[in-house]
């Protein structure tokens, strides 16, 4: 486990996320370190299991620098790669005899607002031949959110990349028709980004107002 690496986001302040209110306990001044900001720290190799074989096969084809960072956490392998190399890496992952990741399970996005490259795209691949799973992850900034599309390699990524575009605004270079899929075509903004509000209205119940979920007191 590599507890020091985890790239995630919101800054937590105060015991209940309270700031500037009547805090009499003194705990309101606590600032918790953000475990998700900061540089990625690779797990020292060898990683054990099939992880080393996967890395060796990948580096043999694409050179050592293809893996920007490699993290093993909770028994799962994550390989961080450059956003313009996802397609070629996935092609190797699928076609290389010693890799054979035939199935692209899932493509999802994650927004880490505290990072410079805040928009992450995460691919989960399964090798049915070898019963292996691996996670590829890449990150882009919100200003130039361009990732190479893997639809040529894994046609199943078609809708999933559209969903990531819809929800996070990541543009997939080479996707045949990158349009919104879950939200209406004329929707503005990308709802799963952390700076996009949840919305909602306050509800009156027996004279009291219950604020919408994202405005309630935050127990973080």
């Amino acid at each position: 486990m590599s507890g020091e690496m985890q790239p995630v986001g919101q800054e937590a302040q105060g015991l209940f996320g309270v700031s500037g209110s009547g805090d009499t306990s003194g705990f309101g001044g606590l600032v918790r370190p953000n475990p998700t900001a900061g540089e990625l720290v690779s797990t020292p190799e060898p990683l054990g299991g099939y992880f080393d074989e996967v890395l060796a096969a990948l580096r043999e084809t694409h050179g050592d620098e293809v893996t920007r960072a490699v993290v093993v956490d909770r028994g799962e392998l994550t390989i961080y790669i450059a956003p313009d190399r996802t397609a070629e890496v996935c092609r190797t992952m699928r076609d290389d005899e010693s890799l054979r990741f035939e199935l692209c399970n899932s493509v999802s996005g994650v927004d880490y607002p505290s990072q410079a490259n805040r928009l992450h795209v995460v691919y989960h691949l399964t090798s049915m031949t070898y019963r292996r799973v691996v996670r590829l992850e890449t990150a882009v900034s919100a200003d130039t959110p361009v990732v190479a599309s893997v639809t040529e390699v894994y046609p199943t990524a078609d809708w999933q990349e559209r969903e990531v575009y819809d929800m996070f605004g990541v543009v997939f270079d080479g996707h045949p028709h990158l349009t919104r899929i879950l939200m209406p075509d004329d929707w503005e903004g990308h709802p799963q980004r952390k700076d996009y509000p949840l919305g909602g209205i306050s509800v009156e119940y027996k004279g009291a107002h219950v604020p919408p979920p994202d405005e309630r007191r935050a127990y973080r």
């Binding site: 995630v8 986001g9 919101q10 953000n34 998700t36 994650v110």
Partner: peptide, 15 residues
């Protein structure tokens, strides 16, 4: 289920 936690009491992201 792809679940991400930032160490808090709420999911950071669940796909």
């Amino acid at each position: 289920i792809h679940a991400v936690s930032d160490g808090g009491t709420r999911p950071f992201r669940v796909h």
